[in-house]
Amino acid sequence: MPSSELDDFAALFDRHAPYIHRYLARRLGDQQADDLVAETFLTAFRRRATFRPEQRDARPWLYGIATHLVAQHRRDEVRRLRLHQAVPPEPDTTCHADQVAAHVTATALRDTLTSALADLTDGDRDVFLLIVQEELTYEQVAAALDIPIGTVRSRLHRARTTLRAALGGRNPLTSTDEGVRHG
C-alpha cells in the first residue's frame, strides 16, 4: 500500500473523526462511541474503493458507515433512552432561576421525548438525529443512509409529526401551538 494513500486516509481521519465521534456519542454514549469511531474508520479503510470521488465530501459516506454500525446496537440504544427516562441528568449550577426553569421544563419533557424517540422506527430516528443533531443536509443524509432524498423528507416529516404529537402539538420553547407550521 502506497504511503500517500495512508497519509490521505490519516488526513481523512483527522478531519472527520471528531464529527463521527460526536454523532456516535449522542447515539450510544462516549464509551461505545470510542469503539465505534475506530470501527467506522476501519470499515471505511477496508471499503475505501467503494467511495465515489464525485461526492467530494467523505463525511456523509462516513456517517452512513457509522449509522450502519449503530443499527447493530439498536437494542442498546432503545434501552439507553429508556434508562435516560429513569435517571435525571446532573443539573448545571449557573443561574439558580434559569436552572430551576430549565430543570422544570426538562423534567416535564424528558420522559415524553425520550419515549417518543425510542418509539420512532429505526429509519425515522436515524434521519431525525442526523438532521437535528448532526446538522446534515437532506442530500447528505440521503447519501449517508443510501436512500432517496424523498425518503429522507418523508421520514423526517413522520418523526417530527410523531414528536410534535407527543408534545401535544406545542413547542415547549415558545409555549405556542406549532402543530401546523412545522410540517
Rank of each mutant, 00 (worst) to 15 (best):
A101Q: 00
Y138L: 12
M1A: 12
L167I: 04
A142L: 01
D92S: 15
A66E: 12
H68Q: 14
H16C: 07
A108Y: 15
L129F: 05
L83D: 03
A116G: 05
L28C: 08
Y138A: 06
S175C: 02
H84E: 03
R125W: 00
R27D: 03
R153S: 09
L28E: 07
G64M: 00
Y23F: 00
E139K: 10
H103Q: 10
L12Y: 02
M1G: 15
T43M: 08
V100W: 01
L113N: 04
Q31W: 01
T162R: 01
L113A: 04
L109C: 05
N171E: 03
D122Q: 15
T67S: 13
I131A: 09
H73G: 00
V100N: 00
R15Q: 14
E54A: 15
L42K: 07
A58E: 11
V127G: 02
T93P: 01
R158A: 00
T40K: 09
T161H: 06
I131V: 14
R56D: 03
V104K: 14
A108F: 12
D7S: 13
A101R: 10
Q133V: 08
G183V: 10
R158C: 03
P60F: 04
D111L: 08
G179S: 15
R181I: 09
D111K: 06
A165H: 11
P88G: 04
Q55F: 04
C95T: 12
M1K: 04
A11E: 15
D57V: 05
L24D: 04
F41I: 07
R26S: 12
S115A: 10
F9H: 07
A108T: 13
S175N: 14
L69Y: 13
Q133F: 12
L120T: 05
Q133N: 11
R170E: 08
R155V: 09
Q133G: 08
L28Q: 03
E77A: 09
D177R: 10
L156M: 03
I131R: 14
E5I: 03
T105A: 15
D14Q: 14
S154M: 09
F41A: 03
E54F: 15
P89L: 01
